[in-house]
Design a protein around this nucleic acid. Structure first.
Lengths: 133, 133
DNA sequence: GCTTGACCTTCCAACTGTTGGAAGGCGCAT
DNA sequence: ATGCGCCTTCCAACAGTTGGAAGGTCAAGC
């Protein structure tokens, strides 16, 4: 099938498919006589795998590792597990950072809403390094 | 003061200070006779403001808007408030996306930990598009 | 006076991930 | 043959930060 078909079936844009090939996340596909990329069902599976890993926040580097492990006739589970756990810890840390930000913003916003005077508690809060980071 | 001093006092790297100047987030500072950048206390305040806005996840573009509002003798509070509220909604959405990811990863990790067979539930979960995105 | 080392300057490139455009070839319809 | 929609390649942009290279400046030490 052509690249647009693979794109449609996988949900990955044609641009991105070519990019994934260029960084060797995907192997070079077969080519037609006139030089068009020719994909098969297996490629579509890999693209879906990539898409899903990306949607879970794995980097392209991690996605490549996962894909390699997947291609490797499903061996070395412990590596996959370690990678997933490490990634989960990263995402948890990021989420907690977001929580902290939301809390700070919430305080500033509230102070601003209950304020009639000309100065702005949000700007003051940003300027004031005594507020928690 | 020189750039390294401004960096030390603000916590913003010299590289970044120059970059912020190049994108006109900061104005061009005075120069010494030999061409060295010469900063004052006000610049340090602005750098700290920037650093804090960035740490709260505001983009450079938003940070510039906030900084401009701040320079504007503290007028137009409602603009600041709107910007902050919009940003908070963005961060909340991001945090929720993270939560969802953590949940999915948690399921996959747990399935993998309670699994003795050769196949890997994490890889299978990534491959299986029936799992929730 | 000359070297050493720590600073300063500029410019150009890398990183991550995705998207966009331009310029040209291919294939099928009218 | 003309037009349309696909395909190809290459080059650039976005956000934000960091890194290196090649060179100028300034103080201290010998």
């Amino acid at each position: 099938m052509r690249i647009s078909e693979a794109s449609r079936l996988s949900g990955v844009s044609t641009r991105l498919i070519r990019y994934y090939e260029s960084i060797q996340l995907l192997g070079r596909p077969a080519r037609t006589a006139t030089g068009y990329r020719d994909y098969d069902q297996r490629d579509v599976h890999e693209l879906r795998f990539i898409k899903r890993a990306r949607s879970l926040g794995f980097s392209l580097k991690q996605t490549k590792e996962l894909l390699d492990l997947w291609r490797d006739t499903r061996r070395a589970n412990h590596k996959v597990l370690a990678l997933a756990e490490r990634h989960q810890r990263t995402i948890i840390a990021r989420m907690q950072a977001h929580e902290a930000i939301i809390e700070v913003l919430g305080r500033l916003i509230q102070a601003c809403q209950s304020n009639d005077r000309p100065e702005c508690p949000i700007l003051d809060g940003l300027a004031d390094s005594r507020s928690r980071e």
